[in-house]
């Protein structure tokens, strides 16, 4: 490189590489989903590996999208403009994106969201957060997951619940009481949670602010991921 040329910005290089990786993962995911039928006649072990493969691809894809979005937040380039949205529509679309993963993992999804509910939020960000939570729930549940929503105390809540063993105690979070203090060194869950918390807090209505909770229990008795939006 010519020594006088300007130093490339590492963040920009990373962002454009992430973009490239995302595209290739997207293609992989599409190919995997396309050959869904091939995998139905195989051994239980291979089936479970197939669903695990789908899960990892889904997770990575979501992580890369989070990274790109966080990059845009950081640079002040994200076009944040909440619009009136129907949570029922968003949840339905998130479910469609997870159709193959759900069936490969033999997990049943219930959606329990009132059709006429309308709330102001950024649909793409919330769909991203719910998608990640759903991918996660499908991996940790026993056989059922549920997406639910409602309005309480003049706030919209959206929850992704499962009937697995629940979150380990050190992961339980309530962003209203304390910041989650996501520790990136500890492993896999950091980015998704960090992203979700960031998205929650981006949503404001005057002095009120969105929140994130990870708890156990709820109707299905397993883990419960809740985002609230004022």
């Amino acid at each position: 490189m010519n020594p006088s040329s300007p130093q490339p910005d590492l963040a920009t290089i990373l962002a454009s590489s992430v973009h490239d990786m995302k595209n290739s993962l997207g293609l992989m995911g599409r190919l995997l989903a396309k050959h869904e039928a091939v995998w139905t006649g195989i051994s239980a072990e291979a089936q479970s590996e197939y669903s695990h493969l789908l899960y990892e691809v889904n997770r990575m894809n979501a992580n890369l999208i989070s990274l790109l979005t966080l990059y845009k937040f950081g640079k002040g380039l994200y076009p944040f403009d909440p619009q009136p949205c129907q949570p029922a529509e968003i949840c339905e679309e998130v479910a469609m994106q997870h159709r193959v993963l759900l069936s490969a993992s033999k997990v049943v999804l219930h959606i329990d969201v009132p059709d006429d509910l309308v709330w102001h939020f950024d649909a793409d960000l919330i769909a991203g957060v719910l998608g990640q939570a759903l991918t996660n729930a499908i991996n940790y549940t026993t056989d059922t997951v549920r997406i639910a929503a409602g309005v309480e105390h003049d706030e919209l809540w959206l929850a992704v619940e499962d009937n697995g063993r629940g979150y380990p105690p050190q992961m339980l979070v309530d962003s209203r009481k304390a910041v989650s203090g996501v520790d990136f060194s500890s492993g896999s869950t950091g980015l998704g949670l960090y992203f979700a918390e960031h998205v929650a807090q981006l949503h404001r209505n005057r002095e009120r602010i969105g929140s994130l909770r990870l708890e156990n229990g709820g109707p299905l008795g397993g883990g419960r991921f809740v985002i609230t939006l004022p």
Partner: peptide, 16 residues
């Protein structure tokens, strides 16, 4: 619509 797109997603959008 953000890629990748599936037929059921497209249909759902078109109907809405």
């Amino acid at each position: 619509l953000l890629k990748p797109i599936t037929a059921d997603l497209l249909l759902s959008r078109l109907e809405k």
